[in-house]
Design a protein around this nucleic acid. Structure first.
Length: 264
DNA sequence: GATCTATGTAGAT
DNA sequence: TCTACCTAGATCG
């Protein structure tokens, strides 16, 4: 269940597992059979994440474009792989490892031209070195929409999901319902920098942990239940910083959480 | 074991 | 605004 950090992590894993060698690609479920045929047996030349989009490059200029949506998941195993069970959209088999992709919202073969369209359509990704935060600022500083909505809009900024949205606004003290044009340039710079830092931790850890040590009230280590979020899914619980009950409402059909004491 | 819920998006209505 | 996608962790009993 991925935000951008998981997709960047997957790109790295796939480069390690499959890079520079031929890969067998198939679609046991059948829904990706035509696409799989276009890249089956070709050399895997690289993997990249663009926001929440995952791209696999092959040596015949073909690119597999995937989006995991809310259900999508990769599961790998050493070769020889066990026979596929259930709805496996794409199976990749490399020299030492193979992986099964299930439940993606998108899995298709595209070309470089299609990628240009995608790059133009999505906003800057805080996890990418080539990201330009000014592109997002241009949209935000002119928008009457809530900053909480804008951070989830992949055409404004890409890779941020519901948890990072809630947590970064808490950490920076910004009310998610405030209009984008009422966010100052300084606040935006802090939001962007914090997102980049938090999401890099997420890539390294494979999970979202944003609570500073001084706010976990001596809770045991991460594996034993140390708190990972300040406000996400904590409706009604006391804020870890000021004790005010955390609020919850739906915004654009998504769950929004914030602390009215710390965010204004 | 059954049921509920969700870190997302596209396309239909 | 609704539905498809069809997984998996949390919660219920």
């Amino acid at each position: 269940m991925p935000e951008g950090h998981i997709v960047h992590r997957l790109a790295g894993i796939h480069r390690d597992r499959f890079g520079g060698r031929p890969v067998r690609v198939s679609s046991p479920q059948g829904r990706f059979s035509d696409g799989a045929r276009l890249v089956d047996g070709r050399v895997f030349t690289g993997a990249e994440a663009l926001g929440k989009h995952l791209l696999h490059f092959y040596d015949n200029e073909r690119i597999v474009h995937m989006h995991l949506g809310i259900y999508g998941v990769f599961r790998e195993q050493p070769v020889p792989m066990a026979p596929p069970v259930g709805q496996v959209r794409m199976r990749m088999v490399g020299a030492e490892y193979g992986t099964d992709l299930r439940g993606p919202t998108r899995c298709e073969v595209v070309d470089e031209g299609d990628l240009e369209v995608l790059r133009a359509r999505i906003g800057p990704d805080p996890l990418r070195a080539d990201a330009d935060p000014d592109r997002a600022w241009t949209r935000i500083s002119r928008s009457r929409s809530a900053i909480g909505t804008l951070l989830m809009d992949q055409s404004v900024i890409s890779g941020v999901g519901n948890i990072y949205r809630a947590e970064v606004l808490f950490r920076q003290g910004v009310d998610p319902l405030r209009a984008g044009r009422d966010v100052s340039r300084e606040e935006w710079d802090r939001i962007w920098a914090d997102l980049a830092a938090l999401m890099r931790v997420g890539v390294a850890d494979g999970g979202i942990v944003v609570v500073e040590p001084e706010h976990d009230h001596g809770a045991p280590a991460y594996a034993e239940g140390k708190p990972r979020t300040y406000v996400y899914r904590r409706a009604g619980d006391p804020c870890r910083v000021c004790g005010t009950p955390v609020l919850h409402r739906e915004l654009s059909a998504r769950n929004l959480f914030w602390c009215p004491g710390c965010q204004s």
